[in-house]
Measured scan of single mutants.
Amino acid sequence: NRRVIAMPSVRKWAREKGVDIRLVQGTGKNGRVLKEDIDAFLAG
């Protein structure tokens, strides 16, 4: 159960899209999950 680094707005975006943010690979600094990462995860 790893800790995910993400801005609150990104966490909210993931929740709205029904995405478990822990499954998303972050591409930002220090592995931070970005809004673009959520979109890419949804795109496959």
Rank of each mutant, 00 (worst) to 15 (best):
R2F: 09
F41Y: 15
Q25A: 12
G44W: 15
T27K: 05
S9R: 10
I38Q: 00
F41K: 04
F41L: 07
R32K: 07
D39V: 10
S9L: 08
L23M: 14
A43V: 13
G18N: 10
K17G: 03
E36M: 13
N30E: 09
L42Q: 07
R3D: 08
G28D: 03
R22V: 07
G31F: 06
V4G: 05
R22P: 00
E36D: 11
R2P: 10
R2A: 09
G44L: 15
A6V: 05
R11T: 05
L42Y: 07
R22D: 06
M7F: 15
I5D: 07
I38G: 01
G31A: 05
I21V: 05
N1V: 14
V4D: 04
D20R: 04
G26L: 01
P8V: 09
K12A: 11
G26I: 02
A43W: 11
G28M: 01
G44Y: 15
E16Y: 13
I21Q: 00
I38L: 05
A6G: 04
N1W: 07
W13I: 12
V4S: 05
I5H: 09
V33Q: 02
T27M: 04
D20E: 06
K29H: 12
A43S: 12
M7T: 15
R11A: 05
V24R: 01
I5Y: 10
F41M: 06
A6T: 05
R15H: 12
N30C: 13
V10A: 05
M7E: 15
K12I: 08
A14D: 00
N1L: 10
K29L: 12
A6E: 03
E16Q: 13
I38N: 01
D20G: 02
G28T: 01
I21F: 04
A14S: 04
A40F: 10
L42S: 07
R32D: 05
R2H: 13
G31I: 01
A14P: 03
I38V: 14
L42W: 08
G31K: 06
V10L: 04
D37Y: 01
G44T: 15
T27I: 02
Q25P: 13
K35M: 11
R3A: 09
A6H: 04
V24F: 02
A40N: 14
E36G: 13
I21W: 06
R11L: 11
R15Y: 13
P8T: 08
E36C: 14
S9D: 12
V33S: 00
R22E: 08
S9I: 07
K12F: 07
V19F: 03
E36A: 14
R22H: 09
L42F: 08
K12D: 08
